[in-house]
Design a protein around this nucleic acid. Structure first.
Length: 696
DNA sequence: CTGCGTGGCATTTTT
DNA sequence: TGCCACGCAG
């Protein structure tokens, strides 16, 4: 078992007495170390799998880890608990819903549902959603919850008008969820904490059960996850966390990489082991990653190295526009495929989902097999959400969110007015909307659901779905539409049935309850399957933990990557840089960095200077693509026709100069502007309308 | 209540 | 650019 490990990894596997922090750089064999460690605990330390809790970042990672441990020690290992924080929280909740004041059949609301609730509350409060962005409010509520700030506590912080609105919405939001017998994602972490804090005996039970706790991707834990871990580990202190602060990319949803930097303060007796040998990438790629990340200030010292040799240089290509960029990517992927490389080993990475579109079009044109991971994933499609809402309603009729979603879909002549008055009645009587229904077309709807409830007791889940689609008229409505779009929706519903069937094949019968819970926590990344023999298109956030021979990073422009919204705060810029670090370290053999001189953005043409991250890579590691030179000359000639119109300049504007690169206007006088460029150029006086100077 | 058209608008990353 | 909210006519 230990043979395949290096010394550091071995040390990490063998140390099982007390807190352990494993600092593992990208590609340093972290998963291997963790799985071997678990296997070792079971086989050599004779720890019951039942006492082991391992937390991973995705459900898929959990499943893989479990499989690998089973391979090492056999089926016996099935009894261990490997899950994400959220699934673990759900499990605790299902075992203790009563103490927390929920009904057995509570439901989980996804972020879309939460947003719907927030919008609804704004309406009830008669607040203009244009003045108070529902999304921003939802995010604020979520971050409060993740930092364990209750509405009552938030009262002390809320001073601005926006915050006061948040406070009001937050209070109502919590109230509504409870009344709906539903919980949101954040509750899955917070409610267990509440439970443990208020019931020593229950906490003790879980501490006794999970004597060994392992947490992967520790740099991405938020406050709630941190506390949850701490509570569980505080008795036996056998806690092992693994992470890399350079790969912390989720602070926007409350992750705090300092949790990893502070581990040694929390556990004074902690042992620290660094895994610094990278088994994934060539030296050039690693050097590039290191030279980028060293521009960040707060990090633990770490020195990633590889014995794979220098390898190919990093290829940089500056395209004319986003179409040209996509074309370049497609052409080079074609070359790779023609030379016998597998599509599985190629990835195109971008900062924002919106960028996938152009790439996708080009892949279609060039007939390259591809898949887009994430973005518009299966469970967020309208027809799937509708079907899910029906199923939830059958399971828990108090679920007002699901009810309002489907009460008029397919059309039943129940409009906004009817729903509003039902809502009001329900509020008045202190019951759910479902319970408040007693007449009209609504009653027909209610009867349909009642019938389905009875049906659900005697049929399999897959059969139930057919019944739902038929008796509600949902299928019929789609069929009568006859559009291509409707056909796709029908196909998706069939696809959904094959998922439920797979569940049934796996576990025999699956109950509606188990299914709803299982499905509400699948993420888009969980859909990612190996061996599809397709090129992967995904955001850098989605690619974490994966690796490819050839990686194309597109859109490396100021304002896109690093993203516009992160330029003001240094901490946010550093997060973008970590994102760049993650992107680079996905590549095993070849890395392509690409950007566009101009690009359509929000319907407008915009010109962006190259990303600063490119400049941070030692230039001797980079080779400019050959194609660049030919194309660039052609394109530059083209460009000259475009930019001769008057340019208005103001102090503070960002500018881009063909020779001097990115700069910022420091003075405007007459027909001249003074622009501060990066060293060695410094401040230059230039003609306002010169072709070489563009506003960014 | 429903369907259609328009105009205004915001656009990061997601368990 | 594409989505969504809104207003209007049937």
């Amino acid at each position: 078992m230990l043979e395949e490990l290096n010394n550091k990894q071995k040390e990490a596997v063998l140390y099982n007495d007390g807190p352990l922090l494993i600092i593992a750089g990208a590609g340093a064999g972290k998963t291997k170390t963790l799985t071997t460690k678990i296997a070792y605990l079971i086989e050599h330390e004779h720890i019951s799998p039942y006492s082991i809790l391992a937390i991973t970042f995705t459900n898929k990672a959990a499943k893989e880890m479990q499989e690998r441990v089973i391979n090492l020690v056999g089926e016996y290992a099935k009894n261990m608990q490997i899950s994400t924080f959220h699934s673990f929280g759900l499990r605790v909740l299902r075992e203790n819903y009563d103490e927390l004041g929920y009904d057995r059949n509570f439901v989980i609301m996804d972020s879309d549902d939460s947003l719907t609730v927030v919008k609804k509350i704004l309406k009830e409060l008669d607040l203009d959603p244009k003045m108070f962005n529902p999304n921003a409010i939802r995010n604020k509520i979520s971050s409060c919850k993740n930092e364990m700030i209750s509405p009552r506590e938030y009262e002390r912080f809320a001073s601005s008008e926006f915050e006061k609105v948040v406070l009001e919405v937050y209070t109502k939001y919590e109230d509504k969820l409870k009344k709906n017998n539903s919980v949101d994602f954040d509750d899955l972490l917070i409610l267990p904490i509440k439970l443990f804090k208020n019931n020593d005996d229950i906490l003790d039970k879980y501490q006794e059960r999970f004597k060994y706790i392992l947490v992967d991707e520790y740099q991405d834990t938020n406050q709630a996850q941190y506390i949850l871990t701490k509570l569980l580990a505080s008795k036996y202190r056998n806690i092992c966390v693994v992470g890399d602060e350079n790969q912390s990319i989720y602070s926007f949803r409350g992750a705090n990489y300092r949790n990893i930097l502070n581990f040694e303060k929390d556990y004074k007796e902690a042992k620290v082991i660094k895994l610094e040998q990278n088994y994934r990438s060539t030296e050039n790629i690693l050097d590039a990653a290191n030279s980028v990340i060293k521009n960040n200030s707060s990090r633990k010292d770490k020195n990633l190295w590889s014995d794979k040799g220098k390898g190919d240089k990093i290829i940089y290509f500056r395209s004319y526009d986003e179409k040209d960029e996509a074309h370049y990517v497609a052409r080079n992927i074609k070359k790779l495929l023609d030379s016998g490389k597998s599509a599985d080993e190629i990835a195109v990475l971008y900062r924002t989902n919106a960028q996938s579109r152009t790439i996708e079009e080009e892949m279609l044109k060039e007939n390259i097999p591809y898949r887009v991971v994430g973005s518009f994933y299966f469970y967020s499609r309208k027809e799937i959400k509708d079907l899910m809402a029906y199923l939830r309603l059958i399971h828990n009729s108090k679920d007002n969110v699901s009810l309002t979603r489907v009460i008029n879909s397919p059309k039943r002549g129940i409009g906004l007015k009817t729903i509003a008055s039902l809502n009001e009645k329900a509020d008045r009587l202190g019951v759910s909307i479902y319970e408040a229904i007693d007449s009209g077309k609504e009653l027909e709807f209610k009867n349909t659901i009642e019938d389905l409830k009875k049906v659900s007791e005697n049929v399999t889940l897959t059969e139930l779905i057919d019944k739902v689609l038929d008796t509600t008229g949902y299928r019929k409505e789609l069929e009568s539409e006859g559009t291509l779009e409707a056909d796709i929706r029908l196909e998706n519903l069939e696809e959904f049935k094959s998922i439920t069937r797979a569940f049934e094949d796996r576990d025999g019968l699956i109950s509606l309850e188990d299914f709803l819970f299982e499905v509400s926590l699948v993420s888009d990344r969980d859909e990612y399957q190996d061996g599809a023999n397709k090129v992967s298109l995904m955001t850098i956030h989605a690619v974490k933990g994966l690796e490819f021979n050839d990686v194309f990073v597109v859109g490396l422009e100021e304002g896109i990557f690093p993203h516009m919204n992160s330029l003001m705060e240094n901490s946010e810029l550093e997060e973008e840089r970590r994102l760049m670090y993650v992107a680079i370290t996905r590549a095993k053999e070849r890395l392509y960095l690409i950007n566009a001189r101009r690009r359509m953005l929000y319907g407008k043409d915009s010109i962006n200077p190259p990303s600063r991250f490119i400049g941070e890579i030692d230039s001797n590691l980079i080779e400019s693509s050959e194609e660049k030179k030919e194309e660039a000359t052609v394109k530059i000639n083209k460009e000259e026709n475009f930019y001769t119109e008057e340019q208005e300049w103001n102090v503070g504007d960002y500018a881009y100069h063909d020779t001097f690169g990115a700069g910022r206007v420091v003075e405007v006088s007459g027909s001249l502007v003074s622009v501060a460029f990066k060293m060695p150029y410094g401040i230059k006086k230039l003609m306002k309308n010169h072709k070489s100077l563009k506003k960014v």
